[in-house]
Amino acid sequence: MGLPDFMKYKDKFTPKEFVEKIQRIAKRAGAKMVYGALILFYTLDSDKVSVKDKAIIIGALGYLISPLDAIPDAIPLAGLSDDLAVLIYVIHKVWGEVSEEVKLKAKAKLTQWFEEDEIKEADNLFLEDPNQGPV
């Protein structure tokens, strides 16, 4: 199965809708997925990110909050797997442009929605060597 056309979701994304959706699915999605989404969301503010990469990020976040998915979110376990796959794909693409400040901001936001032991789940999203990109 190929990745979706990210740009068809560009009109479904607003920062408010993104935050509302993430809050609704946070516990079900898990800290790893939420952390990835927050990384992309906060990366949008970076002046180091090209317009092309910002468009891809917006498409991925739009796909995440869209009620129309390749695998419906309501399906237990599998429902969010396509969303996570899209997020990971885009994180790999823009990883070199993700600042330490963005990572810290995303981790700080996780503390509002998750317990400390749940936040550790997000740690395995990235390798120790940031030049190698996320796991």
Score class of each variant (00 low, 15 high):
M1C: 09
G2P: 11
L3G: 10
P4T: 08
M7G: 10
Y9V: 05
Y9N: 06
K10H: 11
K10D: 11
K12N: 13
F13A: 00
P15W: 04
K16E: 13
K16D: 10
K16G: 00
E17Y: 09
F18V: 12
E20F: 09
E20Y: 07
K21A: 05
K21W: 09
I22W: 02
I22Y: 00
Q23P: 06
Q23D: 04
A26K: 14
K27Y: 12
R28V: 05
R28T: 12
R28Y: 01
G30T: 09
G30L: 11
G30S: 06
K32I: 08
Y35E: 05
Y35A: 06
Y35P: 03
G36D: 12
A37I: 11
A37F: 13
L38P: 05
L38H: 04
I39M: 13
Y42K: 04
T43V: 09
L44W: 03
D45V: 06
D45A: 09
S46I: 01
K48R: 13
K52V: 15
K52E: 14
A55Q: 13
I56Y: 12
G59D: 01
G62Q: 00
G62I: 02
Y63R: 05
Y63T: 12
L64P: 02
P67T: 08
L68S: 08
L68Y: 08
L68P: 00
I71C: 00
P72N: 00
P72M: 01
P72T: 01
P72W: 01
D73P: 01
A74H: 13
P76S: 01
L77N: 06
G79L: 00
G79F: 00
G79S: 01
D82W: 00
L84M: 15
A85S: 10
A85I: 14
L87W: 03
I88C: 03
I88V: 07
Y89T: 09
Y89D: 11
Y89G: 04
V90M: 07
V90F: 06
V90W: 01
I91K: 08
H92F: 03
K93G: 10
K93Q: 09
V94H: 03
V94F: 05
W95G: 03
W95D: 06
G96D: 14
E97T: 06
V98D: 02
E100L: 08
E100P: 01
K103S: 14
L104Y: 13
A106W: 04
A106E: 03
K107F: 03
K107C: 02
K107V: 01
L110E: 04
Q112R: 13
W113K: 05
F114V: 09
F114G: 04
D117N: 12
E118I: 11
E118G: 02
E118A: 14
E118Q: 15
K120V: 04
K120A: 03
A122D: 09
A122E: 14
A122W: 15
A122M: 15
D123L: 11
D123V: 09
N124L: 10
L125W: 08
L125G: 05
L127H: 11
L127N: 09
L127G: 07
L127E: 10
D129V: 02
N131M: 13
N131I: 08
Q132H: 12
